[in-house]
Design a protein around this nucleic acid. Structure first.
Lengths: 368, 368
DNA sequence: CTGTTAGCGCGTTCAC
DNA sequence: GTGAACGCGCTAACAG
């Protein structure tokens, strides 16, 4: 019989010690916490009382999870420093509604992001997180990150991404919304249209988009939105309308501003801007202000997302059901956890016309 | 010798099975993952290879955590539906910078909030989360939630709260900032000043603040900011200046708007508004717009936080170092985890004057 | 460099 | 209603 050295007073009290202190079996103590109906109310009270005086705070969550094979945690994978995730009101709104949906089913959200620290393995968090499921918010197609996620063989929901055989998907009609935006501008007579793109590829981009770079797009929303813009222009009325593409390094107001400034100075004939997010559009508004270009008289600006706050900026934009998307993601995850089959949901988008767009000015380039 | 029924093909592959398949010991496999220097590179490659063909995805995170006594997760407790946490840009910014700071040390953030579901125990998430530390973002003093957090006896950081003997604290000079804001208005000659308060007490409040309710304040920032306002008025120059208090149900733009409308209609002599957050101030701006009151000519508005985006609203506000606060919280947590003693940090606040405040109009109440 | 052993703290059979 | 044993999957310590 092996000895029982069982750390006697090593700070942490265990269920076993409570059992011994009261002279009952461990099962009884366990039942006191997990199945009140399995023992008399009086005994249960005694157990809890002893636990209290001993300073035992209840079953260790970790051991319980290991035993039960369930953690009650869902991981959310974001393919960029979390600081940017939270800087985008639309992303924040999305996360909030996912959290809400899962929380109602007693799941909590674990934020997983690659360490900015270059020497650490960026896949580690995803590989070593104790979760019951994974939600991927913004990952490049065919990336190591995505592979790492899928290789965990957990219930997985992919958001705003290409459909995948091994995971549920929730997304929006990215291209359709983009087409509406471009058509709106074409209908207003614009022909020199700048495009502020979200990140296209993995290596940090930025600035004028070359043909080669455009072929490397790995982010679904970026690819689809651009396709939507292109399709509208290809089929649109002012046959000579053209798109001028720039890529913002990251989805921040500052980068949107810098990017817009660069574009507008390089192409002063530009009379309208298609922005792939409201955050970028916000930056564009600042840029216009800096340059002294009146919006919408001199420059029309369209965003994407209809983020909270965009109404107050009076920004014309493509609306997407951000909160519902989050809710659907939560539901999809719960369905997977419940053993149901995967689904793939595409939600609609709409154009919201506000005050940042107007007809193309008669003499566009006269500011030069 | 007990039998070894060890689930043979129950879907999940274990480290032990990999060891057996290759004919090595479990320790060797474990070492292949955790201490590459403890075995030959060749053997290690063999192990990983076998694992790959067997479909073994590496050590189970849960078991590893149990064994190591460390999860790599820090819980963030928020005392309200997470949806509101994310709706406030300042809160989002704060969370982002906490996440960033911890992530650099390979910790991830677990979002903990009470289930909105009324039948579930709101303390359960906090009690049963597998975490190495807890950060409390917005909890009522002396609340069950706070008690539940502290009773876990984990490294704990309290944000924007009264100092506590058992936890580190990070906060700002709430009262000082509020005083600056009120002094600014007094200096501009305002005497009828409305106050849009954040939540005061536990039971849902809202509307005119009674004396009794004011005595029940349980939220540190609310209490301190109000104290700051009061002190400025008590010591300020227009001796007859008065404060009119209203409480917003929650910290949302919509509630701020409703609250401001109610206040302004009840007290039309009001020429200035002190708002306890930029979110509420944002609502106030909308209310002014609705009423047709020009800002700042007819009504001055001051916010609190200097949230991202407030500059574009041209809002005069009290700035706080939100990102640095997050970073400090992360550092404080890391220090606690490293065994260092608790610290208590108070960060400064400043007044940022923009365009939403101006001198009191000569004929204030003439709109009636 | 490799193998053996002993738990981490708990939940769950069983038999009583 | 209760108690004893086993093992969830892994890693640290030690023995070889």
């Amino acid at each position: 019989m092996p000895p029982k050295p069982a750390a006697p007073s090593s700070g942490r009290i265990t269920l076993r010690e409570v059992a011994r202190a009261l002279g009952v079996s461990v099962a009884t103590v366990s039942n006191a916490y997990n199945r009140p109906d399995q023992l008399s109310a009086a005994l249960r009270e005694q157990v809890l009382e002893t636990a209290r005086t001993l300073g035992y705070g209840g079953p260790d969550p970790l051991a319980r999870s290991l035993r039960r094979g369930r953690t009650g945690v869902i991981g959310v994978v974001y393919d960029a420093p979390l600081e940017y995730a939270f800087a985008d009101p639309a992303a924040a709104q999305f996360l909030g509604s996912v959290a809400q949906a899962l929380q109602d089913a007693s799941y909590n959200l674990l934020l997983l992001a690659s360490p900015a620290d270059t020497q650490a393995d960026p896949l580690l968090p995803v590989q070593s997180a104790s979760v019951d499921g994974l939600i991927v918010y913004s990952a490049a197609q065919n990336s190591d990150l995505l592979r790492a996620v899928l290789s965990r063989n957990l219930p997985t929901v992919l958001v705003d991404q290409d459909q995948h055989a091994q995971a549920a998907g929730v997304g929006i009609d990215d291209a359709g919304g983009a087409t509406l935006a471009a058509q709106h501008l074409l209908g207003l007579g614009h022909t020199h249209i700048g495009v502020l793109c979200l990140e296209l590829g993995l290596r940090q981009g930025g600035g004028r988009v070359t043909h080669e770079r455009e072929r490397q797009i790995v982010y679904h929303p970026t690819a689809e939105r651009l396709r939507g813009y292109r399709e509208a222009v290809a089929a649109g009325t002012p046959a000579h309308a053209q798109l001028f593409l720039t890529e913002a390094g990251r989805n921040t107001i500052a980068d949107g501003e810098a990017c817009a400034l660069e574009l507008l100075q390089a192409e002063p004939q530009t009379t309208a801007l298609l922005c792939m997010s409201d955050v970028l559009a916000h930056g564009a508004l600042r840029a216009a202000h800096t340059l002294g270009w009146a919006v919408p008289q001199r420059l029309s600006i369209i965003g994407y997302d209809d983020a909270p706050g965009s109404a107050d900026l009076n920004l014309t934009t493509v609306w997407q059901p951000t909160s519902e998307k989050g809710r659907r993601v939560g539901q999809a995850m719960l369905a997977l956890l419940g053993g149901e089959a995967q689904v793939d949901v595409r939600l609609p988008t709409r154009l919201i016309v506000r005050g940042s767009t107007a007809a193309r000015p008669a003499t566009p380039a006269q500011h030069l």
